[in-house]
Simulated assay, not measured.
Amino acid sequence: MTDLDHRVGVRESNLVVRNLRLSKVKDENIEALIKEIDKMFGLDEVSFNRKEESIHLAYDAVNLNLAGIEEVIRKHGADIHDDWWTRTKEGYYKFVDQNVKDNSDHTPWSCHKTPPGSVKRKR
């Protein structure tokens, strides 16, 4: 896939996929929740599995993060499920999101380049 296969604001190199279990989800709040998340800049796709009560997200970790999505989830009366596995995944997801964002700003360097202003010796 290329960057053109995704929504505006999503780069293939920064794309992450997340699955989180939710609690306090009702038919009244899930539609509004999904619609609001779907409008966020940097989101590629969102869906909700009613049987497992889990949300599936694909987004660009540079333009969007899990904390911003969680605010929308809580705003609509739902919450992230409070069990060991979901908390572990949530912590790992936040760590990776921050790592992707930090790496996008980093300028790679090489110890084999000559320093600026130096002259190569001719033999």
Rank of each mutant, 00 (worst) to 15 (best):
L4V: 05
D5I: 11
R7W: 07
R7N: 14
G9W: 07
V10S: 01
E12N: 04
L15G: 10
L15F: 14
R18T: 12
R18L: 03
L20G: 00
R21W: 08
L22S: 09
S23A: 00
V25N: 01
V25E: 01
D27C: 11
E28F: 15
N29Y: 07
N29S: 06
E31C: 06
E31V: 01
E31Q: 03
E31N: 04
A32W: 00
L33H: 04
I34S: 08
K35P: 06
I37T: 12
D38I: 13
D38F: 09
K39Y: 11
F41I: 03
G42N: 02
L43I: 12
L43M: 12
L43D: 02
D44V: 10
D44H: 04
D44Y: 06
E45Y: 14
S47I: 00
S47K: 09
N49A: 05
E53F: 03
S54V: 01
I55T: 09
I55Q: 00
I55W: 01
H56S: 01
H56I: 05
H56K: 08
H56R: 10
L57F: 14
L57P: 11
L57Y: 15
Y59W: 13
Y59G: 10
D60K: 04
D60L: 00
N63S: 15
N65K: 07
N65G: 13
L66N: 13
G68E: 15
G68V: 03
I69V: 15
I69S: 03
E70F: 07
E71F: 05
I73G: 08
I73D: 02
I73V: 14
R74C: 10
K75R: 08
H76Y: 07
G77Q: 00
A78K: 12
A78W: 04
D82W: 07
D82T: 02
D83M: 02
D83W: 12
W84C: 01
W84V: 12
W84K: 15
T86W: 02
R87L: 03
T88E: 08
K89F: 01
K89D: 08
G91S: 05
G91D: 03
Y92S: 01
Y93Q: 07
Y93K: 08
K94H: 00
V96E: 11
V96W: 15
Q98L: 13
V100M: 10
K101I: 05
K101G: 04
D102A: 08
D102M: 03
D102Q: 03
N103I: 00
N103M: 00
S104R: 12
D105V: 02
H106G: 10
H106V: 10
P108N: 13
P108E: 10
P108T: 02
W109G: 03
T114F: 15
P115E: 06
P116R: 07
P116D: 13
G117T: 11
G117A: 15
G117Y: 02
S118M: 12
S118W: 13
S118G: 00
V119E: 03
R121E: 15
R121T: 12
